[in-house]
């Protein structure tokens, strides 16, 4: 197995630890992307992130992969810190695999964390926006109704 693959595997493993332990074997084990959308989101996107971090650091691809993850984490039952903790899980993983983390890689991870933070906020804002949109729509129809229980 390539170093990259090992890093991905361990990172996925660590990141999934943020879910209750009863879930680990399913989230980590089931490979069907439609039966296990959460696990698959992690596998696919963390692999893409590692590829970019160790490679050319293509901003667009990073944003795409991060989006998949952050969008999911932003609606699950996490505090912001818990939701984005998976980014920082990468440090110990790389430490384990290659002993030390080079300075450029450190700053790439920092950059990743900042991007994740931006995306997290935009997801949360999106959620509230969507909520307001729904409320507004219902309010409009309810006004048309004006009836309801006395």
């Amino acid at each position: 197995m390539s170093v990259e693959a090992v890093i991905v595997e361990r990172w996925v493993d660590r990141a999934l630890k943020s879910y209750p332990s009863e879930m680990h074997s399913f989230l980590g084990g089931e490979k069907d992307p439609f039966r296990n959308p959460v696990g698959n989101t992690f596998r696919e996107n963390l692999a893409a992130l590692v590829h970019e971090l160790l490679g050319t650091m293509d901003k667009e691809k990073i944003a795409g992969a991060l989006d998949g993850l952050v969008r999911l984490r932003a609606v699950q039952n996490f505090t912001p810190g818990e939701a984005l903790h998976f980014v920082f899980d990468l440090r110990p993983v790389i430490g384990e695999v290659s002993g030390a983390i080079s300075d450029p890689l450190q700053s790439r991870i920092d950059e990743l964390a900042l991007m994740a933070f931006d995306q997290y906020m935009s997801c949360r804002e999106r959620i509230f926006e969507l909520r307001i949109n729904e409320l507004r729509m219902w309010a409009r129809s309810a006004a048309a109704g004006e009836g309801g229980t006395p």
Partner: peptide
Amino acid sequence: EPVANCYRTGNHLGIQPHG
């Protein structure tokens, strides 16, 4: 609320007949 509305006006938003 939808149940109460349906029961009274016939539909779940409480839209009255003219509406």
